[in-house]
Amino acid sequence: MNHEVTDHLKEGFQIISKDWRYVYLNDAVVVHSRFKREELIGRKMVDVYPGIEKTKMFEVLEHCMENHLSANFENEFEYPDGLKLWFELRVQPYDDGLIILSIDITSRKNNEVLRSGYVKELESLIDYTSHHIRQPVTKILGIKGYAESGELSREDLLKLCEILNKSILDLDHVTRNLTERMLEVKAKTQAVD
């Protein structure tokens, strides 16, 4: 195979032999591997990354190798020093081995996690607004509606004032709470930026 084209692809390109040795790695894979090319070529995957044989990713690779099958999947790879990066992997059978194409998708995955976190925060704020803030507001509207709908006894008037007073205090409390929660979300967003 002529590797002139694959050598400089942005996408990682590697060929693994049937006995799990690195046969070819383009520049991108070498960068992803955090090793030098000469430290990888001819060595077995399990020797370079001890414990890799116990991972879900290796299970898929084994399945592809044994059955000459293709597979596409996303995998979070943990390096020996604990660093974790996400890769989108495309595996294809090649002769008796495998071709593995890889793209670093860590940034996209982190954004997905962040976005999901924001959506959860937003849902929680919607729930809070919808139930806790609307509650005293609708009660005040209810008082207004009831007061306008007919004559009020002195007893009614006292009770309405009591409810109104409680609603105003509740509203004060929940709006302060809401502001605090929104400031927390803002602080989290700024910490990420």
């Binding site: 009660k139 009831y146 007919g150 409810i163 409680k166």
Partner: peptide, 15 residues
């Protein structure tokens, strides 16, 4: 569960 609403709604419904 809100006593205020129960008061208002009871009075309204009876009216």
């Amino acid at each position: 569960d809100d006593a205020g609403f129960n008061f208002l709604n009871s009075r309204l419904l009876r009216r």
